[in-house]
Simulated scan of single mutants.
Amino acid sequence: MSLFSCAPKSLCILRLSAIGDVCNTIAVIQGIQQHWPQTKITWITGKIEAQLLQAVENIEVIVFDKNKGIQAYLALWKSLKGREFDALLHMQYAIRASVATLGIKSKYKLGFDKKRSQDFQTLFTNHKVKSPESMHVLDGLMAFSSKLGVPSHQASWTLAYSPTDSDWAKEQLDSSKRSLVIVPAASKAYKNWTHEGYLSLINYALKQNWQVILAGSPAPIEVELAQNLENSIKGDLCNLVGKSKLLEMLALIDQCDLVVAPDTGPTHMANAMNTPVIGLYAHHNPKRTGPYQYQEYVVSAYEEAIKAETSTPIEKLDWRTRVKDKDAMSRIKSEQVIDMFTKAVTDFKLD
């Protein structure tokens, strides 16, 4: 049964991290805004994620800096003193997020049901959102808006960046060529594809007269991998890893022709901008965490790796089961990714 038959005055969204999950959550929030444009939305999120939310209109963003420890909670609760929301959407089951709810006043506190909840999240909510049949993270989040009373709708995104961000992106792109942005690294090294695999893809794209750009954050793991790739390529490779702000990267992803990335935030940024993206997966089931609109273009070694690790049919495994083998991404062969690149070029008329 829906909680609201008419628009609530205010909603609080609790989704602290990470970039990919925040991207998925944006589709839910914008669906709510389309149905109830007068409802005030307050979103509590992490410091980096707040940068991305600058691209979303008509929301109040409150930054929760987890690095400040207990002071982060005290600052959050102080900022919300005297305020009460019609509903809190507790959309992250991490215990640090649940603790934050203790200082958020709301009649309804929605959280995942037992099927999707972890870390005792059910103890911090008074309304459980029924899990959909689909295992994808976004479908689980969309169930929150349905519980509120928002009619079922197709996920869509509207993210806006500044003219300055747009100009920066245009300066990086060669207008005479198709552009491939590769985000080679995730925050966790085991999610990254192999150096040799990336080299094969880059060399192939360069031979096809594509501009190839490496993008990513200034995290040392990303900078090091990009630098090693740049040193190994004889052709013209543009290395922007660590050289862009988050919304500049969003603009670059929006204006390029194709993105290739492992299981990381920019994969979902591309999805949100309707830029074709080839996701590279081995540790998490891409049917759960892959780019929502581009599942057909995922190159996955997950089923092969999980079968080798568990000897259990995938349909009998818990939907969250993760491959533990740190070398699982090496199961993805360069031929597979190049074939998918060729498919994307054909399907999206990029030749």
Rank of each mutant, 00 (worst) to 15 (best):
A251K: 15
G290P: 09
K234D: 07
G216H: 03
Q227K: 12
A226S: 15
V241S: 12
L229F: 01
Q154R: 12
L199V: 01
I213H: 02
L246R: 10
S187N: 15
D167F: 07
L159N: 01
S244K: 14
Y281G: 13
T158M: 00
G242S: 10
L214C: 09
A215S: 14
N274D: 13
D174K: 15
T164V: 15
P266T: 15
N231D: 14
H284E: 03
L252A: 09
S200L: 01
V277S: 06
T164H: 13
V223N: 04
L258A: 10
L247M: 14
T289G: 04
M269E: 00
W157V: 05
D165H: 15
R288F: 12
P220C: 10
N192P: 04
N228C: 05
I253M: 10
L250M: 02
L246S: 06
Y198E: 01
I253K: 07
Q255G: 07
M269S: 02
Q208S: 08
E171N: 15
K177A: 04
A186P: 05
Q208N: 05
L159V: 06
L280A: 06
T289S: 04
I202E: 01
N209S: 13
Y281I: 14
S166K: 08
H195W: 02
T275F: 03
Q227D: 13
K207C: 04
P286N: 13
A186R: 07
L246V: 11
